[in-house]
């Protein structure tokens, strides 16, 4: 006799393989729900419990989540673009042109990468303004604000290093101007410019260095700081609740103790 879908699902979820991966097993008790979050390597960064109201649009406008969303879009489209792009002086410009005109969906992927990059900068700023004006940067969340500033800098550096890769006039002069700004650093300025460019001119070495920074070093740093950023939300007592909101202040201390 054929079973229902639910019974097959139950059988699967009770199987040894399933239980070896998802240890918490079946169940809808608070304990099961908490374990499902705690025992997942990705979800354990987040609090096991959140106030239902904090999941609504009004609490955060989802600005942080949307920033993460654009970052994920950028990683996926960026890796796909890397399959057709050579970071070399003779090929870089024509590869980008090929992506626009010869590669199937290349135009779509490149534009998605470009617009997501713009959106990520905008959303990161919007997220910071929201956090600032709500006062969510205050104790005990000061350190997470600092991590956020580092993430903003990484976002801007990713934008800047990606700027050179099309190797057109705009890219060349933008990086000429930008690295000359770096050379205004007292004493070390010219050395910093030399190390950034791998020479005295915006040339093959500079293109390769910016490519490696853009595709490896800065994204890895961003992943690292993102993980700390999310984990700190949990450690700092969950998403920020404004103390002036009714019914919050009285309960706050005991709840905060729990979520720590």
């Amino acid at each position: 006799m054929p079973g229902t879908f639910a019974s097959y699902l139950e059988k699967l979820e009770n199987s040894r393989v399933w239980r070896s991966i998802f240890r918490s097993g079946r169940g809808t008790s608070t304990l099961h729900n908490a374990l499902a979050i705690q025992q997942n390597v990705f979800l354990h960064l987040f609090p096991t419990k959140v106030r239902k109201r904090m999941l609504g649009l009004g609490a955060t406008w989802y600005l942080g989540t949307l920033t993460l969303g654009t970052f994920i879009v950028l990683v996926v489209t960026g890796v796909l673009l890397m399959l057709y792009y050579h970071p070399s002086v003779p090929l870089a410009y024509s590869d980008v042109k090929d992506l626009q005109f010869a590669v199937s969906s290349g135009l779509f992927l490149r534009n998605l990468h470009r617009w997501s990059a713009h959106a990520m900068v905008f959303l990161a700023f919007a997220h910071m303004f929201r956090v600032f004006y709500r006062g969510a940067y205050r104790a005990p969340r000061e350190f997470n604000w600092v991590v956020g500033v580092v993430l903003l800098l990484l976002t801007l550096l990713l934008s800047y290093t990606g700027y050179l890769l099309p190797w057109d006039q705009l890219a060349f002069w933008a990086i000429t101007v930008g690295t000359n700004i770096a050379s205004a650093v007292p004493l070390l300025g010219d050395k910093i410019r030399f190390l950034l460019l791998g020479g005295n001119l915006v040339n093959a070495n500079a293109l390769l260095r910016f490519y490696v920074l853009h595709t490896v070093i800065l994204p890895l740093a961003a992943f690292l700081f993102l993980a700390v950023h999310f984990w700190r939300i949990r450690k700092d007592g969950g998403l920020y609740v404004r103390e002036s909101e009714p019914g919050v202040k009285a309960k706050k201390t005991s709840e905060e103790q729990e979520s720590l």
Binding site: F194, L195, G198, G199, N200, L201, N203, A204, N205
Partner: peptide
């Protein structure tokens, strides 16, 4: 690292 990142030969 500093020495490695400073090229000794430049094709400029």
């Amino acid at each position: 690292y500093y020495q490695y990142l400073s090229p000794n030969v430049l094709f400029e």
